[in-house]
Amino acid sequence: MPVITDPPPPDVVADLAVLRAALDDRIPKRKPDNLLIATWNLRAFGSLTRKWHSGPDDSPRRDLHSALAIAEVLRRFDVIAIQEVKADLRALRDVLKLLGPQWAFAMTDVTYGQAGNAERLAYLFDTERVRLSGLACELVVPDDLDTPFSSAANAFQRQFVRTPYAVSFLAGTKTFVLVTLHVIYGDQSAKRKDELLAIARWLRAWAEQEDDFGHNLICLGDFNIDREGDPLYEAFVSTGLTPAPDHKGLPRTVFGGSRNTNFFDQVAWFETVRKKPYLTLEYRTGGNFDFRGVTMPELTVQQLSYRISDHFPLWVEFGR
């Protein structure tokens, strides 16, 4: 049985060369004066089939080739928020072996229950570029009716299905706090709206509290927002959260066209707090990485979604 550190076969080597060239072309290089932050919902990121090419009877379909491709994408960033990390960490551990000893991770415990889908939230980060600065917490809301974080329509009387996860990092002299979450998904958009309202109000209060410290609060993850301008989007931006401008119109999933309207994944922050600019980081640019037709082009989109993911990584570049 092959392992992730074995030399890959020639066809995998050739595929990875094409992938690296596309990444070189579409994602800024990491430099001393920049910071690259990404979010990626990695579909059911749990176990791994220890073959270079999984077969129709293998479960999961994600294989060693897939792990190498995922690692090639991840290594282009300094910090990546990952959603849908499962209880089984085989794929994550193999990817970390590929990334090298300077890479580390922080994660939540598994969220059990049907709605929680046995998922974790995680951050992967390159310790040669950023380091932890002390804060790691999960966000909860008070359950009393008078809380400012409750929904205006009906007070938010339960916790988030998958508790948002906040971790602070230091890049040079700049502190930034990332808050990632995977908003509940389902047919009842009202439940999603409650979660989006709650997180927007929570983050606004936190930003105002931390404003004097220059902590650069940034929210990122899979918010399951259907489209710009719908009630879910309006709930998300209701307290001033501003999505990265270069993400407007970009596809978020493998099932959309070259440009589509879904807004599932977001990276956002407050432009102003207390009537003054909030971020001390300088926003430069942002984008996604559409890997369709780049890696494993022989697969259907559905097959590719189980090898790599059904979501694209979404990234932003800041100046330090």
Rank of each mutant, 00 (worst) to 15 (best):
P231Y: 05
S258I: 13
F213Q: 14
Y283Q: 03
L220M: 09
C219H: 12
E234M: 13
G240N: 02
D211E: 12
V237T: 12
H247D: 06
L250Y: 10
A207P: 12
L250I: 09
F223Y: 12
T280K: 09
Y283D: 01
H215C: 11
T239D: 07
D230C: 03
C219A: 15
G256H: 06
F270I: 02
V237C: 06
R274H: 13
R259A: 14
Q209D: 13
F213Y: 15
W206F: 14
Y283P: 02
D211Q: 15
R274I: 06
D226A: 11
T242H: 13
K275M: 07
A244E: 10
K276H: 11
F223D: 00
L217R: 04
H215I: 09
I218W: 03
W269E: 00
D212S: 12
F255A: 05
E228Y: 09
F264R: 11
F263N: 07
L279H: 00
H247F: 07
N262F: 11
F255K: 07
N260A: 11
D222K: 05
D222Q: 02
G249L: 07
E210W: 15
G257Y: 03
G249N: 06
E210N: 09
F223I: 02
E208W: 02
S258C: 12
G257L: 08
E228R: 11
A207S: 13
H215S: 08
T272N: 14
E228Q: 10
N216C: 04
G249Q: 02
F213R: 15
D212P: 03
N260H: 12
N262D: 14
Y233N: 04
A235W: 01
N260W: 07
G240Q: 00
Q266S: 02
P245G: 03
V254I: 13
D230E: 01
P251D: 03
R227W: 10
R259H: 14
K275I: 02
G256L: 01
L241I: 04
R259G: 11
A244L: 06
G240E: 01
K248V: 12
L232D: 08
D230A: 00
K248R: 15
G221I: 03
H215N: 14
I225E: 00
P243Q: 08
K276Q: 10
P243N: 08
L241W: 05
W206A: 13
T242R: 14
K276D: 04
F213M: 11
R227D: 09
Q266H: 05
G221M: 07
V237K: 07
G214Y: 01
N216P: 11
L232C: 10
V267D: 00
F263Q: 10
N262P: 02
L217F: 03
E208Y: 04
D230R: 04
H247C: 06
C219S: 08
F255R: 05
D222N: 06
T272V: 09
L279N: 00
V273Q: 03
D230P: 01
W206R: 15
E228G: 02
P277K: 12
P243I: 01
D212V: 05
F270W: 07
A244R: 02
T239N: 06
W206V: 10
T280L: 01
N224F: 09
N260M: 03
H215Q: 13
G214M: 05
T261W: 14
